[in-house]
Design a protein around this nucleic acid. Structure first.
Ligand SMILES: [Mn+2]
Ligand SMILES: [Mn+2]
Ligand SMILES: [Mn+2]
Ligand SMILES: [Mn+2]
Lengths: 220, 220
DNA sequence: AAAAATTTTTAGATTTACCTAAAAATAAAA
DNA sequence: TTTTATTTTTAGGTAAATCTAAAAATTTTT
């Protein structure tokens, strides 16, 4: 059994490991809003418990047990987010913080029944995949909107930034999950992207385009 | 803002105060499965925060702020229990422990929306009243089944014991909330009570009868 | 009212999760 | 390959919540 804090460390390491293989102490510290010295302490503890492999100065990797634990927390987080949006009518930008708390409730039965109650959803309100009870989930192939060429089209299926400010902005622009878009132009000056969205031309900044994930319809 | 632990102390003091005015250190310790010395430490802290009134050796009473906080936790606990039973099909004897965790999730919005989602229930699966968002709830007048005289009848509207063993036992006997009963005899030998329940005679021990709460139909 | 029993508090430690400051190791630049 | 910069670890300490053992206060019994 892990503490609330240990669970958060495992989850953070799991997310960081999606980008880099060896997760660095400083990266964990930044993500967890704590100090590198505290991270070192916790890493040692997690290593003692067999949840991470750790070589001094070389960063950490999750063991299989550690990764399974992390995936279970991610599963809970995402299921609760679905619950909040689908059943309690929260907006997609309002659910993250509450899910950060709910994900630590320890009851296998609760999560299985919640999953069933929600109809075994495959993705959360931000398009992130929900692992099943065995920790399996499809590795989704997203491409960043910024990487599309003029003429390419696709469907918005995810976001790589979950801040309320960003999500609210997308909502205002009408850029919500499931929407079809086509890139009509890329501005030389500032790299901003012009897209066609339900017959309207809209312009989005490079920064925004970086965090919108598209499942491509293939080239035009 | 209170810690998880402080919230549990407040809730415990609140429940104990339903029976005795001045809540004793030892009683809190027993309820919280901790030592009297720990309770003294925490009481001092709660007193410093203005949540309890405390005179050394004289026990504690909740201040208004303390009581309101406690009632809010009780509200959350009971709403989550309703959710678990009504929406996730838990049995009434399976919900308490999970609710003990869920009651500490801090989000006013979450609870208001949950309350609405559940249809603003007035009682939890054990018949206990659910405070509204202002902390108000009807003080229900229950009478213990054991206190009924032969010939008296009434409806089962609550239980004063929430252990899984007890609740499962009641379920097996068919003694669930809403059921009509009438006392047909009281055994001299062991004080057990014979009752009429949907045209069947059943015998329940004195111990069981003590923890079943009846809203009386008046004398027969 | 003394003695005995019970309840409550204090004193002193422990564990967990943090912190700051300084030392050590590694990586990057000159 | 030194020098410099960055990253990471160690050393030593704090605060919250707990504990055991012993002292103090209160209550109950004789
Ligand atoms: Mn989230
Ligand atoms: Mn999400
Ligand atoms: Mn309960
Ligand atoms: Mn209940």
């Amino acid at each position: 059994m892990q503490s609330y804090t240990e669970e958060n460390y495992l989850k953070t390491i799991y997310h960081l490991a999606e980008q880099t293989t060896n997760v660095q102490t400083n990266a964990i510290a930044e993500q967890m809003q704590t100090k590198p010295a505290s991270v070192t302490d916790m890493i040692k503890k997690l290593a003692d418990k067999g949840l991470v492999d750790y070589i001094k100065y070389q960063g950490v990797t999750l063991t299989e047990i550690g990764r399974n634990t992390a995936i279970d927390i991610v599963r809970k987080h995402r299921l609760w987010e679905v619950f909040l949006v689908d059943k309690l009518n929260f907006k997609w930008d309002e659910v993250h913080d509450v899910a950060e708390e709910l994900e630590h409730i320890k009851s296998v039965e609760l999560i299985e029944r919640l999953d069933e109650f929600l109809g075994f959803p495959k993705a959360d309100p931000h398009g992130d995949p929900i692992p099943d009870k065995n920790g399996r989930f499809a590795k989704t192939q997203f491409i960043k909107l910024i990487e599309l060429k003029v003429g390419d089209s696709g469907t918005i299926t995810g976001v790589s930034q979950h801040s309320s400010a960003f999500l609210k902005h997308l909502e205002k622009l009408g850029l919500t999950l499931g929407k079809q878009i086509q890139v009509s132009d890329v501005t030389d000056f500032d790299g901003s992207v012009e897209i066609l969205l339900s017959n309207k031309q809209i312009n989005i900044s490079r920064e925004v385009a970086k965090h919108i994930l598209i499942s491509s319809n293939g080239k035009n």
